[in-house]
Nucleic acid binder design. Structure first.
Lengths: 191, 191
DNA sequence: TCGAGACTAGACAGACCGGTCTGGTATAGT
DNA sequence: ACTATACCAGACCGGTCTGTCTAGTCTCGA
């Protein structure tokens, strides 16, 4: 891929950027193709030659968010040495996300709310959730939890719950009680 | 309202029943008016004279689910005496819900995923969440929690997280780790 | 017996949906 | 100079969306 300046993004990149804004803010079902291509400044045929279908565009949009989240989380995790600090770094990254001014909930929860069974959306969701669960499980194991899978599951519940609460209760501070609860559960799981 | 046998439901009742099935299973946005009236065996004009708009039908559908959940939960709570048992009864009711064969996630999370801001959907969501938070806070206070609001918030996170996990991870057992985590958090909050 | 109210069936309007296709332009490699 | 590629603008297709309207049926109370 050629090196481009910020103003010379490829059509595919502009489409993904437009999809990221519109799909996330208003929902993948309520936003039509026409609005995406208008925001991207791209012809409809270009979208279909690049992605093939709206479903695949949605999948690419989710995949992009998954990779971005993974990189941000891993960067935060790698700043610390002890497993316990690394676990808390996951929640710190979450806290930053929930505090962003345009936070509209977990993109994966939202997208899968009305996804048809077997849709490409579900594959992207499974990838994201599998990665996060795996990370939490590994860190829980390294921390010495008696039952790492169970602790990881519990931390995942808190993670999801904070995302839901931040959106539905209009309170970006939901990561704070989640973090405190995570600490309590980690402590309890080390006996 | 007249007493009716099961086969003589009013048009309004049949519409609500059809909406409950279709909206919950497939999503409020992907299911159109035509499918609702077809399932209800009702004319379109009847729907609009009874509810005025699709948005109001959705609101009524959510209100119905809210009332049903409240009654089921309160019935379970009232079976116990101690605040701690009563808190756990909330999670036991949740566990039953998640284990139902046609569970498709929290109806309120799903409906609000693509709701337009200011839509009637948001009012129904606020009512439901306010009730649940209030119940958890009251029980946490009766249990003697040092910070009842915080404990209630944490339990609410677990409650939401279990709903999300049960759907997204295809695992109806998500209420089990949630219940264990709730017990640990309650114990830790009583110091 | 008559008339009000609740209901049904279905045409219709106007907008929007995802997706295909035509036609034309700009650029880069050979 | 020729060609392949990438892209744009926009007409167009068949279908679906919410919501309105007409017209007719059924029931029940006065």
């Amino acid at each position: 891929m050629a090196v481009r300046s910020a103003e010379q993004l490829s059509a595919r990149e502009r489409l993904l950027a437009a999809a990221n804004e519109l799909f996330y803010e208003e929902g993948v079902n309520t936003v039509g193709i026409d609005r995406v291509i208008e925001r991207a400044g791209v012809a409809k045929a270009t979208l279909y030659s690049a992605f093939g279908s709206k479903d695949e565009l949605i999948r690419a949009y989710l995949e992009q968010r998954y990779q971005a989240r993974r990189e941000r989380t891993m960067r935060a995790v790698e700043k610390f040495e002890t497993p316990r600090e690394r676990l808390m770094a996951v929640f710190d990254t979450l806290s930053e996300s929930l505090s962003q001014p345009n936070y509209h909930g977990c993109a994966f929860v939202n997208a899968s709310a009305e996804a048809r069974p077997g849709s490409p959306i579900e594959r992207a969701v499974d990838g994201y959730r599998g990665w996060l669960r795996g990370l939490l499980t590994q860190l829980a194991r390294e921390a010495g939890a008696a039952d790492p899978e169970r602790l990881a599951w519990q931390l995942h519940l808190l993670y999801d719950g904070a995302s839901v609460s931040a959106r539905m209760d209009h309170d970006p501070g939901a990561a704070f009680p989640a973090r405190l609860a995570a600490e309590a559960l980690i402590s309890a799981a080390l006996d």
